[in-house]
Nucleic acid binder design. Structure first.
Ligand code: FES
Ligand code: FES
Lengths: 161, 161
DNA sequence: ATTTACCCGACTATTTTAGTAGGTTATTCC
DNA sequence: GGAATAACCTACTAAAATAGTCGGGTAAAT
Protein backbone atom coordinates (compact mmCIF):
# COMPACT_ATOMS: atom_id res chain seq x y z
CA UNK A 1 0.00 0.00 0.00
CA UNK A 2 1.26 3.40 -0.78
CA UNK A 3 -0.27 6.74 -0.02
CA UNK A 4 2.21 9.50 -0.79
CA UNK A 5 2.03 13.06 -2.03
CA UNK A 6 0.91 11.78 -5.43
CA UNK A 7 -2.43 10.57 -4.08
CA UNK A 8 -2.70 13.44 -1.61
CA UNK A 9 -2.05 16.04 -4.33
CA UNK A 10 -4.67 14.43 -6.55
CA UNK A 11 -7.35 14.56 -3.85
CA UNK A 12 -6.37 18.11 -2.89
CA UNK A 13 -6.56 19.25 -6.53
CA UNK A 14 -9.91 17.56 -7.06
CA UNK A 15 -11.25 19.17 -3.91
CA UNK A 16 -10.03 22.55 -5.14
CA UNK A 17 -11.88 21.86 -8.38
CA UNK A 18 -15.03 20.98 -6.46
CA UNK A 19 -14.77 24.17 -4.40
CA UNK A 20 -14.61 26.32 -7.54
CA UNK A 21 -16.77 24.22 -9.83
CA UNK A 22 -19.54 26.84 -9.95
CA UNK A 23 -17.22 29.37 -11.64
CA UNK A 24 -16.77 27.48 -14.91
CA UNK A 25 -13.62 25.52 -15.88
CA UNK A 26 -10.70 25.81 -13.44
CA UNK A 27 -7.20 26.09 -14.92
CA UNK A 28 -4.30 24.09 -13.54
CA UNK A 29 -2.32 27.30 -12.93
CA UNK A 30 -5.09 28.47 -10.57
CA UNK A 31 -4.91 25.19 -8.67
CA UNK A 32 -1.12 25.39 -8.69
CA UNK A 33 -1.22 28.87 -7.14
CA UNK A 34 -3.83 28.08 -4.52
CA UNK A 35 -2.55 24.66 -3.47
CA UNK A 36 1.18 25.16 -3.97
CA UNK A 37 1.58 22.21 -6.32
CA UNK A 38 3.95 22.34 -9.30
CA UNK A 39 2.07 22.98 -12.57
CA UNK A 40 3.94 20.30 -14.52
CA UNK A 41 3.24 17.76 -11.84
CA UNK A 42 -0.46 18.66 -11.86
CA UNK A 43 -0.53 18.09 -15.62
CA UNK A 44 0.71 14.53 -15.10
CA UNK A 45 -1.87 13.86 -12.42
CA UNK A 46 -4.74 15.32 -14.45
CA UNK A 47 -3.75 13.24 -17.44
CA UNK A 48 -4.53 10.19 -15.29
CA UNK A 49 -7.66 11.72 -13.77
CA UNK A 50 -8.93 12.43 -17.28
CA UNK A 51 -8.24 8.86 -18.43
CA UNK A 52 -10.28 7.64 -15.45
CA UNK A 53 -13.06 10.02 -16.55
CA UNK A 54 -13.13 11.92 -13.27
CA UNK A 55 -12.59 15.24 -15.05
CA UNK A 56 -13.19 16.67 -18.52
CA UNK A 57 -11.01 19.32 -20.12
CA UNK A 58 -11.77 22.56 -21.94
CA UNK A 59 -8.95 23.85 -24.11
CA UNK A 60 -8.06 27.38 -25.06
CA UNK A 61 -8.25 30.68 -23.15
CA UNK A 62 -10.68 30.59 -20.25
CA UNK A 63 -10.42 26.80 -20.38
CA UNK A 64 -9.41 24.36 -17.71
CA UNK A 65 -10.90 21.32 -16.06
CA UNK A 66 -14.39 20.44 -14.91
CA UNK A 67 -15.63 17.58 -12.77
CA UNK A 68 -17.11 15.00 -15.09
CA UNK A 69 -19.99 14.27 -12.73
CA UNK A 70 -21.64 15.61 -9.61
CA UNK A 71 -19.53 16.25 -6.48
CA UNK A 72 -21.82 13.79 -4.74
CA UNK A 73 -20.76 11.01 -7.11
CA UNK A 74 -16.98 11.32 -6.90
CA UNK A 75 -15.34 9.45 -4.04
CA UNK A 76 -11.85 9.79 -2.60
CA UNK A 77 -11.04 6.13 -3.28
CA UNK A 78 -11.68 6.67 -6.99
CA UNK A 79 -9.24 9.59 -7.08
CA UNK A 80 -6.49 7.70 -5.27
CA UNK A 81 -7.07 4.67 -7.49
CA UNK A 82 -6.78 6.86 -10.60
CA UNK A 83 -3.28 8.16 -9.84
CA UNK A 84 -1.87 5.54 -7.49
CA UNK A 85 -2.26 2.00 -8.72
CA UNK A 86 -4.50 1.21 -5.77
CA UNK A 87 -5.04 1.31 -2.03
CA UNK A 88 -3.94 -2.30 -1.75
CA UNK A 89 -2.12 -3.36 1.41
CA UNK A 90 -1.17 -6.85 0.24
CA UNK A 91 2.22 -7.62 -1.25
CA UNK A 92 0.68 -9.91 -3.87
CA UNK A 93 -2.00 -7.60 -5.32
CA UNK A 94 -4.61 -10.11 -4.22
CA UNK A 95 -2.97 -13.03 -6.04
CA UNK A 96 -2.13 -14.97 -2.85
CA UNK A 97 1.35 -15.75 -4.09
CA UNK A 98 3.83 -13.53 -2.31
CA UNK A 99 5.76 -16.41 -0.74
CA UNK A 100 7.21 -18.00 -3.86
CA UNK A 101 3.83 -18.72 -5.43
CA UNK A 102 2.01 -19.67 -2.26
CA UNK A 103 0.00 -17.72 0.29
CA UNK A 104 1.97 -16.02 3.05
CA UNK A 105 0.94 -16.14 6.70
CA UNK A 106 -0.44 -12.63 6.81
CA UNK A 107 -2.18 -12.47 3.43
CA UNK A 108 -5.69 -12.45 4.91
CA UNK A 109 -4.82 -9.74 7.39
CA UNK A 110 -3.69 -7.39 4.61
CA UNK A 111 -6.79 -8.23 2.57
CA UNK A 112 -8.96 -7.22 5.53
CA UNK A 113 -6.98 -4.01 5.97
CA UNK A 114 -7.29 -3.16 2.27
CA UNK A 115 -11.05 -3.63 2.46
CA UNK A 116 -11.17 -1.45 5.53
CA UNK A 117 -9.28 1.42 3.88
CA UNK A 118 -11.17 1.10 0.63
CA UNK A 119 -14.57 1.12 2.36
CA UNK A 120 -13.59 4.20 4.32
CA UNK A 121 -12.30 6.21 1.37
CA UNK A 122 -15.09 5.02 -0.88
CA UNK A 123 -17.77 6.46 1.32
CA UNK A 124 -16.34 10.00 1.36
CA UNK A 125 -17.49 12.11 -1.58
CA UNK A 126 -16.13 15.47 -2.71
CA UNK A 127 -19.51 16.96 -1.74
CA UNK A 128 -19.01 15.79 1.85
CA UNK A 129 -15.50 17.28 1.97
CA UNK A 130 -16.70 20.61 0.55
CA UNK A 131 -19.38 20.77 3.26
CA UNK A 132 -16.92 20.31 6.13
CA UNK A 133 -16.29 23.35 8.29
CA UNK A 134 -12.53 22.71 8.60
CA UNK A 135 -12.18 22.44 4.81
CA UNK A 136 -14.16 25.64 4.22
CA UNK A 137 -11.89 27.54 6.59
CA UNK A 138 -8.71 26.44 4.83
CA UNK A 139 -10.31 27.19 1.46
CA UNK A 140 -11.25 30.70 2.53
CA UNK A 141 -7.73 31.43 3.74
CA UNK A 142 -6.32 30.17 0.42
CA UNK A 143 -8.78 32.31 -1.50
CA UNK A 144 -7.57 35.46 0.30
CA UNK A 145 -3.92 34.51 -0.16
CA UNK A 146 -4.30 33.80 -3.87
CA UNK A 147 -6.03 37.14 -4.41
CA UNK A 148 -3.10 38.79 -2.67
CA UNK A 149 -0.68 36.90 -4.91
CA UNK A 150 -2.73 38.07 -7.88
CA UNK A 151 -2.41 41.71 -6.77
CA UNK A 152 1.33 41.22 -6.17
CA UNK A 153 1.70 39.83 -9.68
CA UNK A 154 0.00 42.88 -11.13
CA UNK A 155 2.26 45.21 -9.15
CA UNK A 156 5.31 43.28 -10.34
CA UNK A 157 4.03 43.40 -13.90
CA UNK A 158 3.52 47.17 -13.57
CA UNK A 159 7.07 47.62 -12.24
CA UNK A 160 8.60 45.48 -14.98
CA UNK A 161 6.46 46.99 -17.72
CA UNK B 1 1.68 6.40 4.85
CA UNK B 2 3.71 3.47 3.85
CA UNK B 3 3.05 -0.19 4.25
CA UNK B 4 5.64 -2.19 2.36
CA UNK B 5 7.37 -5.51 2.75
CA UNK B 6 9.24 -4.15 5.76
CA UNK B 7 6.08 -3.91 7.85
CA UNK B 8 4.58 -7.04 6.32
CA UNK B 9 7.72 -9.08 7.01
CA UNK B 10 7.77 -7.87 10.60
CA UNK B 11 4.18 -8.93 11.24
CA UNK B 12 4.73 -12.25 9.46
CA UNK B 13 7.85 -12.95 11.53
CA UNK B 14 6.11 -12.04 14.78
CA UNK B 15 3.19 -14.27 13.88
CA UNK B 16 5.61 -17.11 13.16
CA UNK B 17 7.11 -16.49 16.57
CA UNK B 18 3.65 -16.59 18.17
CA UNK B 19 2.84 -19.86 16.40
CA UNK B 20 5.99 -21.52 17.77
CA UNK B 21 6.21 -19.74 21.10
CA UNK B 22 5.44 -22.89 23.09
CA UNK B 23 8.62 -24.58 21.84
CA UNK B 24 11.11 -22.27 23.54
CA UNK B 25 13.11 -19.55 21.77
CA UNK B 26 12.74 -19.45 17.98
CA UNK B 27 15.88 -18.74 15.93
CA UNK B 28 15.85 -16.30 13.03
CA UNK B 29 17.12 -19.00 10.69
CA UNK B 30 14.00 -21.06 11.47
CA UNK B 31 11.81 -18.07 10.65
CA UNK B 32 13.89 -17.39 7.55
CA UNK B 33 13.35 -20.97 6.33
CA UNK B 34 9.65 -21.11 7.06
CA UNK B 35 8.71 -17.64 5.86
CA UNK B 36 11.22 -17.20 3.04
CA UNK B 37 12.67 -13.98 4.41
CA UNK B 38 16.39 -13.19 4.15
CA UNK B 39 18.22 -13.84 7.43
CA UNK B 40 20.20 -10.59 7.33
CA UNK B 41 17.05 -8.63 6.73
CA UNK B 42 15.29 -10.37 9.62
CA UNK B 43 18.18 -9.38 11.89
CA UNK B 44 17.64 -5.72 11.05
CA UNK B 45 13.92 -5.99 11.72
CA UNK B 46 14.38 -7.82 15.02
CA UNK B 47 16.88 -5.24 16.16
CA UNK B 48 14.04 -2.72 15.96
CA UNK B 49 11.47 -5.09 17.46
CA UNK B 50 13.83 -5.67 20.39
CA UNK B 51 14.32 -1.92 20.92
CA UNK B 52 10.53 -1.55 21.06
CA UNK B 53 10.49 -4.36 23.65
CA UNK B 54 8.20 -6.59 21.62
CA UNK B 55 10.68 -9.48 21.75
CA UNK B 56 13.52 -10.59 24.02
CA UNK B 57 16.57 -12.44 22.82
CA UNK B 58 18.36 -15.54 24.07
CA UNK B 59 21.92 -15.88 22.88
CA UNK B 60 23.97 -18.97 22.28
CA UNK B 61 23.09 -22.44 20.95
CA UNK B 62 19.39 -23.24 21.23
CA UNK B 63 18.78 -19.52 21.55
CA UNK B 64 16.58 -17.25 19.53
CA UNK B 65 13.76 -14.84 20.19
CA UNK B 66 10.78 -14.93 22.50
CA UNK B 67 7.72 -12.70 22.65
CA UNK B 68 8.27 -10.27 25.50
CA UNK B 69 4.65 -10.52 26.60
CA UNK B 70 1.51 -12.55 26.00
CA UNK B 71 0.24 -13.06 22.44
CA UNK B 72 -2.96 -11.41 23.63
CA UNK B 73 -1.10 -8.20 24.47
CA UNK B 74 0.81 -7.65 21.22
CA UNK B 75 -1.07 -5.81 18.49
CA UNK B 76 -0.31 -5.50 14.80
CA UNK B 77 -0.16 -1.70 14.97
CA UNK B 78 2.66 -1.94 17.54
CA UNK B 79 4.69 -4.19 15.24
CA UNK B 80 4.25 -1.96 12.21
CA UNK B 81 5.07 1.11 14.31
CA UNK B 82 8.27 -0.57 15.54
CA UNK B 83 9.79 -1.11 12.08
CA UNK B 84 8.03 1.47 9.95
CA UNK B 85 8.02 4.95 11.33
CA UNK B 86 4.24 4.85 11.63
CA UNK B 87 0.92 4.19 9.96
CA UNK B 88 0.46 7.89 9.33
CA UNK B 89 -1.42 8.95 6.21
CA UNK B 90 -0.75 12.68 6.51
CA UNK B 91 2.09 14.39 4.67
CA UNK B 92 2.87 16.57 7.66
CA UNK B 93 3.18 13.93 10.42
CA UNK B 94 0.30 15.62 12.21
CA UNK B 95 1.99 19.04 12.26
CA UNK B 96 -0.61 20.70 10.00
CA UNK B 97 2.07 22.40 7.94
CA UNK B 98 2.47 20.61 4.65
CA UNK B 99 1.54 23.63 2.54
CA UNK B 100 4.46 25.91 3.32
CA UNK B 101 3.78 26.02 7.04
CA UNK B 102 0.01 26.13 6.84
CA UNK B 103 -2.68 23.45 6.81
CA UNK B 104 -3.47 21.93 3.43
CA UNK B 105 -7.01 21.36 2.22
CA UNK B 106 -7.03 17.64 2.88
CA UNK B 107 -5.19 17.50 6.19
CA UNK B 108 -8.24 16.50 8.21
CA UNK B 109 -9.17 13.77 5.78
CA UNK B 110 -5.78 12.11 6.17
CA UNK B 111 -5.95 12.46 9.93
CA UNK B 112 -9.27 10.63 9.91
CA UNK B 113 -7.85 7.93 7.68
CA UNK B 114 -4.80 7.49 9.91
CA UNK B 115 -7.06 7.05 12.93
CA UNK B 116 -9.14 4.53 11.04
CA UNK B 117 -6.12 2.41 10.07
CA UNK B 118 -4.53 2.67 13.48
CA UNK B 119 -7.74 1.67 15.28
CA UNK B 120 -8.14 -1.31 13.00
CA UNK B 121 -4.58 -2.61 13.37
CA UNK B 122 -4.50 -1.83 17.07
CA UNK B 123 -7.41 -4.10 17.81
CA UNK B 124 -5.88 -7.19 16.19
CA UNK B 125 -3.62 -9.16 18.54
CA UNK B 126 -1.21 -11.96 17.65
CA UNK B 127 -3.48 -14.29 19.65
CA UNK B 128 -6.40 -13.47 17.37
CA UNK B 129 -4.31 -14.11 14.26
CA UNK B 130 -3.01 -17.43 15.61
CA UNK B 131 -6.61 -18.53 16.25
CA UNK B 132 -7.76 -17.87 12.67
CA UNK B 133 -8.48 -20.91 10.55
CA UNK B 134 -6.88 -19.47 7.40
CA UNK B 135 -3.68 -18.67 9.28
CA UNK B 136 -3.52 -22.17 10.84
CA UNK B 137 -3.81 -23.75 7.40
CA UNK B 138 -0.93 -21.74 5.95
CA UNK B 139 1.13 -22.44 9.07
CA UNK B 140 0.56 -26.17 8.79
CA UNK B 141 1.61 -26.21 5.13
CA UNK B 142 4.78 -24.27 6.03
CA UNK B 143 5.52 -26.69 8.84
CA UNK B 144 5.41 -29.66 6.46
CA UNK B 145 7.51 -27.85 3.86
CA UNK B 146 10.17 -26.82 6.35
CA UNK B 147 10.47 -30.38 7.65
CA UNK B 148 10.97 -31.50 4.06
CA UNK B 149 13.65 -28.85 3.58
CA UNK B 150 15.27 -30.11 6.75
CA UNK B 151 15.37 -33.69 5.41
CA UNK B 152 16.71 -32.41 2.08
CA UNK B 153 19.47 -30.55 3.88
CA UNK B 154 20.49 -33.72 5.71
CA UNK B 155 20.58 -35.68 2.46
CA UNK B 156 22.68 -32.96 0.83
CA UNK B 157 25.00 -32.92 3.84
CA UNK B 158 25.35 -36.71 3.59
CA UNK B 159 26.19 -36.50 -0.12
CA UNK B 160 28.73 -33.73 0.38
CA UNK B 161 30.22 -35.30 3.47
C1' DA C 1 37.46 -24.56 22.35
C1' DT C 2 34.05 -24.65 19.29
C1' DT C 3 29.69 -24.00 17.73
C1' DT C 4 25.54 -21.50 17.78
C1' DA C 5 23.03 -17.56 17.11
C1' DC C 6 22.33 -12.85 18.32
C1' DC C 7 24.38 -8.17 17.38
C1' DC C 8 26.05 -4.20 14.66
C1' DG C 9 27.49 -0.98 11.10
C1' DA C 10 28.42 0.01 6.56
C1' DC C 11 27.57 -0.58 1.83
C1' DT C 12 24.69 -1.18 -2.59
C1' DA C 13 21.35 -2.14 -6.51
C1' DT C 14 16.84 -1.15 -7.63
C1' DT C 15 12.67 1.24 -7.55
C1' DT C 16 9.69 5.02 -6.66
C1' DT C 17 8.82 9.69 -5.97
C1' DA C 18 8.51 14.27 -7.14
C1' DG C 19 9.60 17.35 -10.22
C1' DT C 20 11.76 19.59 -14.69
C1' DA C 21 12.18 20.66 -19.49
C1' DG C 22 10.64 21.39 -23.92
C1' DG C 23 7.67 20.91 -27.16
C1' DT C 24 2.64 20.31 -29.77
C1' DT C 25 -2.30 21.08 -30.44
C1' DA C 26 -6.78 23.26 -29.86
C1' DT C 27 -9.48 27.48 -28.87
C1' DT C 28 -10.64 32.23 -28.24
C1' DC C 29 -10.08 37.10 -28.53
C1' DC C 30 -8.32 41.02 -31.13
C1' DG D 1 -5.03 35.92 -39.66
C1' DG D 2 -2.22 36.26 -35.47
C1' DA D 3 -1.31 36.31 -30.69
C1' DA D 4 -2.34 34.58 -26.40
C1' DT D 5 -3.96 30.91 -23.54
C1' DA D 6 -4.09 26.54 -21.62
C1' DA D 7 -4.53 21.68 -22.33
C1' DC D 8 -1.64 17.79 -23.92
C1' DC D 9 2.48 14.81 -24.42
C1' DT D 10 7.14 12.63 -24.03
C1' DA D 11 11.29 12.22 -22.02
C1' DC D 12 14.58 13.11 -18.62
C1' DT D 13 16.47 13.60 -13.70
C1' DA D 14 17.70 14.33 -8.57
C1' DA D 15 16.72 12.57 -4.39
C1' DA D 16 14.86 9.33 -1.36
C1' DA D 17 13.31 4.87 0.23
C1' DT D 18 13.37 -0.06 -0.19
C1' DA D 19 15.22 -4.43 0.15
C1' DG D 20 18.53 -6.28 0.63
C1' DT D 21 24.11 -7.93 1.20
C1' DC D 22 28.57 -8.31 3.55
C1' DG D 23 31.78 -8.76 7.10
C1' DG D 24 32.85 -8.83 11.23
C1' DG D 25 31.87 -8.83 16.09
C1' DT D 26 29.94 -10.85 21.14
C1' DA D 27 27.44 -13.92 24.64
C1' DA D 28 26.31 -18.50 25.95
C1' DA D 29 26.08 -23.59 25.83
C1' DT D 30 28.22 -28.13 24.97
S1 FES E 1 0.21 -10.70 0.90
FE1 FES E 1 -0.93 -12.04 -0.40
S2 FES E 1 0.29 -13.86 -0.32
FE2 FES E 1 1.39 -12.52 0.96
S1 FES F 1 -1.42 16.63 5.48
FE1 FES F 1 -1.29 17.84 7.28
S2 FES F 1 -1.12 19.85 6.47
FE2 FES F 1 -1.27 18.66 4.68
Amino acid sequence: MRLTTKGRYAVTAMLDLALHSDQGPVSLSDISNRQGISLSYLEQLFSKLRKSVLVTSVRGPGGGYRLSRLKEDIFVAQIVDAVNESVDATGCSGRSDCQGGTTCLTHYLWCDLSDQIHDFLNQISLAQLVAREDVRQVAERQSIESQQTCVDDKINAAIIG
